[in-house]
Design a protein around this nucleic acid. Sequence first.
RNA 1: UGGGGCAUGGUGCAAUGGCAGCACACCGGCCUUUGGAGCCGUGGAUCUUGGUUCGAAUCCAGGUGCCCCAGCCA
Length: 569
Amino acid sequence: MSPEETKSRIPSFIREAVAEDLRTGRFTYVRTRLPPEPNGYLHIGHVKAFLIDYFTAQEFGGELYLRFDDTNPSKEETEFVDAIKEDAAWLGIKWVKETYASDYFDRLYEWAVRLIKMGLAYVDDQSQEEMSAARGTLPKGTKWSETEPNIRPGVDSPWRNRSVEENLDLLERMKNGEFPEGSRVLRAKIDMNHPNLLMRDPVMYRIMHIPHHRTGDKWHIYPTYDWSHGQNDSMEGITHSLCSNEYIIHRPLYEWFLEKLGEFPSRQIEFTRLNLTYAMMSKRKLRKLVESGVVRGWDDPRLTTLRGLRRRGVTPEAIINFITGLGETKNDSWVEMAQFEAAIRDDLNKRALRRMAVLHPLKLVIDNFPEGVTEEMEAVNNPEDPSAGTRKVPFSKVLYIEQDDFRETPPPKYYRLYPGNEVRLRYAYIVKCTHVVKDETGNVIEVHCTYDPATRGGDAPDGRKVKSTIHWVSAQHAIPAEVRLYDQLFTVEKPDDAELEEIINPNSLEVIENAFVEPALGEAKLGESLQFERTGYFCLDPDSRPGKPVFNRTVTLKDSWAKIEKKSK
RNA sequence: UGGGGCAUGGUGCAAUGGCAGCACACCGGCCUUUGGAGCCGUGGAUCUUGGUUCGAAUCCAGGUGCCCCAGCCA
C-alpha cells in the first residue's frame, strides 16, 4: 500500500465499518443490494444510495444485487422495473443478480409460520383505528410537544394471546383470501410499551386483494417493509444493508427478527440522504408535474430525474463525480444546485466539442470582403483535448453574430462590437465596425464592417491586441436550429416543502425557434457533449428532425460579463 | 417534555488530544483567439456554558437548536 491511500468513493464511516467486519470475521465476504421500489422513475436523490451500494461492493471485491422491493402491488408496476434497470445501467452500475422481494414470498411465509409457532406473532382482528389508538400515541395531527404526556403506554390487543393453532389457521385463510381487506393483520409480538413505536407489535402482513405484477393473484396478503426487507437481505446473504438515516429507528426491529429466527445476520448501516436545492424529489409531486403537463414528461430536461438529466446532456461521470465528491457525515444537509452545476461544467469542459451557434442572430456584412467567395477556416474542436482535432468552418461576406455582441452605444467595460471598435471573429479575421443599417423603427438590422485581410485565422501580424473575440456563422452556410434554454423549474430552494402551484417558474423554458448553427452541428449525434462557444454546454435533443436539429442547453458557461453588467446597474 | 439521530465559514465536507484545512459560492487580480478554461490572492466557521488537560472542534457534564418516528407506505 502506497503512503497515499487510494481515493475511496464511499463514505469513510461505511468503509471502516465494512473493513472492521471483515477483520473481525463477522463476515467473510461483502455483498450489498440496491433496493428500489418499482413505483416511479429514478432521480438524483436515488443515485447516492445506488453509488454507495455499488462502490462498497466494488471496493471490497464483493458483489451487488439489484432487488426490487415489490411488496405493495397497489403502487408498483412492471413499467418502472424496466425504466429503473435502464437508468441504473446508463449510470454505469453493474449488478450480478436481479431479484425481487416477491421471489421470497413463499419462504417469507414459512418464516412467519415459524414465528407464530414460537409464540412471537399473532393475527390481530382490530381495525386500523383501534390499532392506532392502542399503540399509545396521541391522535393524528397532534404535534409532539403540544400536549403532555405526548406518549402513553400501549395497550395489548385482545387478540394477542390466541393459540398457535388459531393463528396458523387464520393466517392461512388470510393468505387464501377468505377475509376482506383491513379485517385482520399478522403482527409480531414484541412489546406494547416499548419506547420505540416501531417495536410495539409491528404489522407483518396485511390483506390486499390486488394482483401482483409478478405473482398474479396467488397472494391475498403482502408483507410490510419491516417484515420483508431484512428477511430478504438475510435470505440473499447480504452482508451490508445500506440505507438512509430515516431507517435508523427501524434497525432494532431489523435485528429483532433475524435474531429470533436465527437467520443470517445482515447488518444495516445508515447514511444521510441527498437533498439538493431546487430539485424535486417527492415522487408524488414529480408525478403531478408530469401528469398536469407542467413538464413534458418524465424525461423533461428541467427535471432531476435520471432521464431528465440524460436528456439535458448531463453525463453519468458528472453525476458520479458530484455525488462522490460531496463527502459524508450523518448530518442532515442541503447541497446547493450550484455545486452540481460546477461538477457538470467540470466534466463537460473536458469532453465537449466546441462549436459556433448564434442564438439571436444579427446580420453582419463585411463590406470589403469579395462577394460570392467562401473561405474555410480551421477551428479547434476542443482546446482541452488536442486529440479531438480540428474542423473547417465556412466564412463569407455575410455572417450572423449574436445581438448581444453589438451595441450602438457601449456601456462601460463593454469590449465587443460597436461603431469604430475592432473585434476578432473567432478563427477568422479581425473586423472593424464602420456603420449600421436600421429599420424604420430604429432597430439595428445590419452591422457593417471592414476586415483586415492580414489577420486570417485571427492572429494580428503587427501584434495589435484586440480585446474581444466573438463567434459567428456564415449566413449562406448556416443551419437553422431550434434551441431550448432551461432555467430552474422552481422559484424556491426546497420545492418538496411547498405547494406546487405557487413555486413554478414560468420562465423555466425558453424556446428559440430561429437560431443559426455552423454546418458541423448538422452532424451532431445524440448523446454527444457540445459547447456552443461563449454560450454554454448543449446536446442534441431526440426531437431533432433532418434539416432542423433541436439543441438543449445543459448549463451556461460562467459569465463574468453578466456579473459586470449586473453590478453596474 | 417517549425514543432515536445530528450540530465546523453562505453551502457541502476535512482535521480521530497538538498551527482549524479543502471544494462550491462570493470578492479581487493575472492570463487568454471562448468575458470559458487555467493560475494567484482576500474575507469569512468549531451551537452554548462549565469541566478534564501543558494543550480540546475532538474527551466529560449540563444547556440550546434542528431532523426522524405515532401507515395495514418504502
